[in-house]
Each structure stands twice: as C-alpha cells, then as structure tokens.
Amino acid sequence: MTTKFVHHICIQTNNYEESLKFYRDILGFELIEEFPNFHNRYYNSWLKLGAFYMELQTGKLDENLNYVNPKTQGINHFCIWVDDLVKEVQTIKQLGYDFILKNGEEIYQVENGYLCKLIAPEGTIVELRDNRGI
C-alpha cells in the first residue's frame, strides 16, 4: 500500500490581506509562496504550519465569493494543536479577535482536553486544542 496523507486544504477569501494576516500573524503559519494574478485570481498562496499546508486564494477576478453557512454539510472546521491554550487565547484576544462561546465560556472541556473556536476573517471556523487542564 502506498503512503497517504492529507496534503493541504484550500481556503478562498474575498479579503486576502485580512485572511493572510490572520493565518500568518495570529496563528503562526509561514507564507511559503505567493502568486499574484494566478489563473485569473488576484492571489493564490501557500502557507505552512508544521507539516500542514494551506492554499489561500481569492476568487476569480471580479468575483465575490459567497459565505459558507457553518450548519451545512461538509468540513465544519479545522483544528490546530497548541502547547498552551490559555496563553494562545489571551494573545489572540489582545489582538482583537473574538471566540465562539459555549455556555458562556471561550475555553471548554471535551474528551482528552480543552478547546476553543474562533472565526477567521473569511468565515472559516478554527479550533484550537490542547490536552492539559486549566
């Protein structure tokens, strides 16, 4: 059997600069390649976090992308494992981002750890998780 693994996810955005800033400056992705004017798109870029890749792209020229409803079928969110969830939440809050509350809490316990969720500028739900107690 050949080795299989997930190579990347692709996220489209109407506000490239805001989404790029979020993933690069807030979540710590490294911008690997940036291609302006790529196949009739303003931008198509590659970001990396550890061994995980993300393709970040705009819609086609003069195309306004629709918002995805989180109550639809398909991918609901993606998760980033962090060493210190409390510290990550404090840092992200200081930068002006809000979290999705559950029972009034930003961080809540689930099996095998704690997590929180926030919404990226283009609407992608990002989960942050660790396995230590608060």
Rank of each mutant, 00 (worst) to 15 (best):
L118Q: 07
N112C: 02
G123Q: 06
G28R: 03
Y108I: 08
N37G: 06
L20Q: 01
R24F: 07
H39V: 14
G104Y: 11
Y114F: 14
V126R: 11
L85S: 00
Y53I: 09
T58D: 07
L118H: 03
C10I: 11
V6E: 00
E30F: 10
V89L: 10
F99W: 13
N64K: 14
N15V: 06
E55L: 04
G113S: 05
T72H: 09
N37H: 13
M1Y: 11
Q94H: 04
L56H: 02
C10V: 14
Y67H: 09
D98T: 12
T13M: 02
E88Y: 10
E34F: 06
G133R: 05
D25K: 08
N14P: 04
F99P: 06
F99D: 04
G123V: 13
G59Q: 07
E63G: 00
Q109M: 09
G133A: 08
F22G: 00
D98I: 06
N37F: 14
K71E: 12
V89N: 08
E63K: 10
E88V: 05
G123H: 04
Q57G: 05
Y53K: 12
G59M: 12
W46T: 10
F29S: 02
I134F: 15
Q57C: 14
V110Y: 05
F5T: 05
N14Y: 09
E122L: 03
G133I: 14
I80W: 06
F52D: 07
Y53F: 14
H77R: 08
V82S: 00
T91L: 15
D130A: 03
N40L: 10
L85T: 04
L118S: 04
I9S: 00
N64T: 15
N64D: 07
P70I: 05
F35D: 02
N69L: 11
A51Y: 07
K4C: 00
N14E: 08
I125F: 09
F38Q: 10
A120G: 01
D25Q: 07
N44P: 00
R41E: 04
G133Y: 07
Y43G: 00
R129N: 00
I11L: 15
Q109S: 14
L101S: 01
L95D: 02
K71Q: 06
A51I: 09
L65T: 12
N76R: 14
E34Q: 12
I119K: 09
G104E: 05
E17A: 12
E105G: 00
P70D: 01
C79G: 02
K71F: 13
Q109L: 11
V86N: 02
L128G: 05
I32C: 05
F5Y: 13
L95K: 15
H7M: 11
N112I: 09
Q57I: 11
Q90G: 06
T3D: 03
K48P: 11
V89E: 11
K21L: 13
L47F: 07
H7Q: 14
E122Q: 12
F22P: 01
F52L: 07
K48L: 13
Q73F: 14
K4W: 11
I92M: 10
H8W: 07
K71I: 10
Y42V: 09
L56I: 06
C116Q: 04
N103Y: 12
I75C: 08
Q57M: 15
G113V: 13
K102V: 15
K102S: 09
V82H: 01
D130I: 09
D83K: 10
V89T: 13
